[in-house]
Design a protein around this nucleic acid. Structure first.
Lengths: 113, 113
DNA sequence: CCCTCGCGTTTCTTTCTGGAACTTTCGTTT
DNA sequence: AAACGAAAGTTCCAGAAAGAAACGCGAGGG
């Protein structure tokens, strides 16, 4: 099965993953939950390259997790805000955060005192 | 940043995703939560190709989410069972299941009567 | 002795990703 | 007014990863 065929899978988990199961998409959502909205903020977050970011944002908008909203007209500028649908994914990220804190401590020394 | 550098990221979500944020890994975990343990069961689940499956299982064992356990000696056979650490990811999958059921209904007709 | 099962591994081709520069549309500076 | 800079993408190319499908291999069975 191809990844792209997953959206019609019988399993709701698979369908969800067809939308957010991508390498970087959940990291974009994390940034959204941290309050970021602008392309340059996501880009500066140190994650993916710009064209991957653009692609993922487009897909998140298509599926209704984010909304692309003009926040300036004269220089046309858009930002991305979570919809209610997107907000409902926050608990999943929270679980991953707790799991990571518990099971994957940072190996480098003393970054967190 | 490369995906492989994510495991030392400051963010616990990013570290978790460096382990399970892969396209197919969460689908393998779903199968585990449904009680599957054997290579052929995962393979028959209709997801990834065999060499991707082999690779992901290896990584899940390395990181301690699954345990590779001999269930037969004379023909050497191994299966994969969740560890306690792996079990703790189940709530995240449950959330994704509920989210998928709510927001991504199957488009094909009448599969679920 | 050849077949099959379970569990992968190899090979080859196609698609995706990483990195970095480039574009476009304005607003600001000199 | 010409140059500069910021925001939000796009484009190009080399290299990495994924998909398809055949192959390997050790044990048991007919």
């Amino acid at each position: 099965m191809k990844w792209s065929e997953l959206n019609d899978n019988w399993c709701p988990v698979a369908r969800t993953l067809s939308v957010v199961g991508d390498r970087w998409t959940l990291l974009i959502l994390r940034d959204c939950f941290l309050g970021k909205t602008k392309f340059e903020e996501f880009a500066a977050s140190g994650g993916m390259t710009r064209h991957i970011l653009a692609d993922r944002l487009k897909r998140l908008v298509e599926v209704g997790i984010l909304e692309r909203r003009a926040y300036s007209v004269s220089p046309k500028r858009y930002d991305y805000v979570l919809t209610a649908k997107g907000e409902e994914l926050r608990p999943a990220l929270t679980i991953m955060k707790e799991w990571g804190k518990k099971h994957l401590p940072i190996r480098r020394a003393a970054l967190e005192g």
